[in-house]
Design a protein around this nucleic acid. Structure first.
Length: 380
RNA sequence: CGGGGAGUAGCGCAGCCUGGUAGCGCACCUGGUUUGGGACCAGGGGGUCGAAGGUUCGAAUCCUUUCUCCCCGACCA
């Protein structure tokens, strides 16, 4: 991309709205523009990063055998009434009426829809296991959106859903995802810490949340130092899950099972959460399959979420210094930048243009600053 | 949802207390000089002061209502 053709509205004076560093830097770099509380437009530079993150998430999902699809943002209320969550979700759910007065909603998550899709088509144990996902915008009408894109009301999330015949195979699916998550965050240059978590309103009895280390994170984590040096080649989910890790209000020094010298304390930001919740939704939404004996049984489900748009902010929280954002190469908006310091010099300009064409031909996403302006402006 | 704060030019802010018809920096436009770290000089454009109502000869300024946004807390991917 030639800088002269790129829309990148950088600013010197940051709006006083922005409080945390990632939010400030994203505004300064011209990545996002707030549209209303917790709702943002993604300007070209921010959009590139968002897409890079999304692509890593996608590739690791596909590697783990999940099927990408796309479900709508607007859903009808009926499935939610069936699952019982139409009332449970309360004011966080944005409810809308269509022209004929039908009750609709902007989806905060997709368990109901996916379960309905599943039950329409899958009727035999022979078709299991299945794992379906999509990367789609969600809306949760938070009481208090904050921290820029890290806690927006509208956010991009990868969510997937596994379907298995029984608890035993469901746990295999669960661990596959667990492993995919660790790999995903490692590829982004982050340090993921997995913690056993409460299942909350989604229900179920097995759940992990994934935090990434960042000095500015909201949670304080206590964990085995081994978790900081994971090798993606030899990941063993069972072993990983056996390491100690807890958030501060669950950590009790007296009961901590590991030695003090093995314990690390850092700040973290939650970027992913996985759940195994058994047959909670499959029963209510009638997702049954027939087993070998012809008996109809409710499928065992899990759901798995990664906050894609939140990751953009979280990445910056984890990777910046006083000068600005330090992009990990895998998510950087450009891989290389060429700055022509002497645009009036024909040789220099020819050389810069040649380099630019060659890098682009070699598939190296390059930003070429071809503007005729003073040096300082280009380098900052 | 409780507590606090803010809405004045595209962005950052001053003016408000003590009413007299709006100003500064950045950005933008024109001309000139510059060109290895967000250039300089000169000239210029741009504002129903969030909205509505009230008080007053006169309201950005005082009063009432309302909308929006932010921060702290509780809550949460």
């Amino acid at each position: 991309m030639k800088y002269s053709e790129f829309f990148i509205p950088t600013v010197k004076d940051i709006p006083s709205d922005a409080e945390i560093i990632s939010h400030k830097l994203m505004i300064k770099a011209g990545m996002i523009k707030q549209s209303s509380a917790g709702i943002y437009s993604w300007l070209p530079l921010g959009f590139k990063v968002l897409k890079n993150i999304e692509q890593i998430v996608r590739e690791e999902q596909n590697n783990a055998g999940a099927n990408e699809m796309l479900m709508p943002t607007i859903q009808s209320s009926d499935l939610w009434v069936k699952s019982g969550r139409y009332d449970d979700y309360g004011k966080e759910m944005l409810r809308i009426k269509d022209r004929s007065g039908r009750e609709m909603l902007y989806g905060p998550t997709n368990e109901e829809l996916i379960t309905d899709i599943f039950q329409t088509y899958i009727t035999s144990y022979k078709e299991l296991p299945k794992n379906l996902y999509h990367i789609q915008w969600k809306f949760r009408d938070e009481v208090r959106p904050r921290f820029g894109v890290m806690r927006g009301r509208e956010f991009l999330m990868k969510d997937n859903y596994s379907f298995d015949l029984n608890e035993e195979t469901a746990k295999i699916s669960y661990n596959k995802m667990f492993k995919a998550y660790i790999k995903t965050f490692l590829r982004m240059g982050l340090t993921p810490i997995s913690l056993r978590a409460e299942t909350g309103p989604i229900g179920g009895n097995l759940s992990h949340e994934f935090q990434i280390l960042a000095n500015t994170g909201e949670s304080t984590l206590y964990y085995d130092k081994e978790l900081e040096s994971l090798d993606p080649e030899s990941l063993d989910p069972e072993k990983l899950q056996s390491y100690y890790a807890a958030v501060d209000d669950e950590h009790d020094e007296a009961k901590c099972p590991i030695k003090k010298e093995d314990l690390k304390i850092s700040k973290g930001i939650e970027v992913g959460h996985i759940f195994y919740f058994g047959t909670k939704y499959s029963q209510k939404l009638k997702a049954y399959v027939q087993d070998k004996n012809g008996k109809r049984i409710a499928v065992h489900m899990g759901s798995y979420g990664i906050g894609v748009s939140r990751l953009v902010g979280a990445l910056i929280e984890a990777n910046h210094d006083e000068k600005g954002i330090k992009w990990p190469m895998s998510v950087a908006p450009f891989k290389l930048s060429i700055i022509n310091l002497m645009p009036d010099d024909q040789n220099c300009t020819t050389m810069a243009s040649d380099y630019y064409s060659n890098f682009m031909a070699g598939n190296i996403d390059t930003l070429y600053d071809d503007r005729e302006c003073s040096i300082g402006k280009k380098i900052i």
